[in-house]
Design a protein around this nucleic acid. Structure first.
Length: 263
DNA sequence: ATGGCGAGAGGATCTCGA
């Protein structure tokens, strides 16, 4: 099976790019989208249905929003933290639509859009850290039900200096502080491994490039979109790749798709 | 370089992203 993740920065603006990509990559079983930026009532289902896909969505106005685009029907769709955890202590962590999970065969797929955090020390930064803390509880609950968990999406954290074009000063930059890395590490220490690094140990591989200052043409990127797999799935993985082609198109998303192949 | 670019909402110029 192939599972892809792509922060499309508005599914309506990018609908042609996404549909073209699906047609060029027919072997992808499930495409996990982030930043759909559309309320559920306005989600563009039709183009996906016409191509033969099922759509599962969790959106809101203007910001955030996630979706699963799948060749075959998925089971047990759950959205937000509370659908898995029951009542949560901080309901505001579910106000932003960032989390959708479903079963695909024996695999629990979790598609997420981790908060960006804005600036170190800001209210949004604290929100990001609280969100990651609750994410650990959420995944613990899912893991208790199924050991085959794949989490993917836009994590808004570069987990290593190798994943940043220029790590100088990264200690004080959002997406690369030690505090954020430690918060994500606590999640990953539940038993998740970065499958991209099973196949590629070198630097220079990124999934996001700033629109500004010619970020892409100068390859000034960050690798912040990942698939993290539990041990059993990690061992079954046979490939993982970043497809930079969509980032070269006119009016692109600032992120590009990342794909994992699992036997 | 505290800017650069892009999207959405709304109808000029904000907020937000990363």
């Amino acid at each position: 099976m192939k599972i892809a993740t792509w922060n499309v920065n508005s599914v309506r603006t990018r609908i042609n790019h996404v549909c073209d990509w699906l047609q060029a990559n027919p072997e992808v079983d499930v495409l996990c989208l982030q930043e759909t930026k559309v309320i559920d009532a306005d989600f563009p289902h039709a183009p996906f249905i016409e191509l033969g896909y099922q759509t599962y969505i969790y959106g809101q106005k203007s910001y955030n929003g996630v979706a699963l685009i799948s060749r075959s029907p998925l089971e047990d769709i759950q959205t937000g933290f509370a659908s898995v955890l029951g009542e949560i202590n901080e309901p505001n962590l579910d106000e932003q639509k960032r989390l959708i999970t479903a079963k695909f065969g024996d695999v629990q797929i979790v598609n997420m859009y981790v908060p960006n955090g804005s600036e170190v020390g800001s209210e949004k930064y604290e929100y990001k850290l609280r969100w990651l803390k609750l994410l650990k509880e959420y995944l613990q609950t899912l893991l208790a039900q199924n050991p085959n968990v794949l989490i993917c999406g836009d994590f808004n954290v570069a987990i290593a200096d190798l994943d940043i074009y220029d790590p100088k000063g990264r200690e004080n930059k959002v997406m690369s502080t030690d505090v954020e890395r430690e918060a994500l590490d606590k999640v990953l220490n539940l038993g998740f491994k970065d499958v991209f690094r099973k196949f590629e140990s070198g630097g220079g591989y990124y999934s996001w490039w700033d629109y500004r200052s010619g970020g892409f043409s100068r390859n000034r990127g960050w690798r912040i979109d990942y698939h993290f797999l539990t041990e059993s799935l990690y061992n079954r993985a046979t490939a993982s790749a970043i497809d930079v082609e969509p980032r070269k198109l006119i009016q692109p998303s600032d992120h590009t798709p990342v794909i994992v192949t699992i036997d």
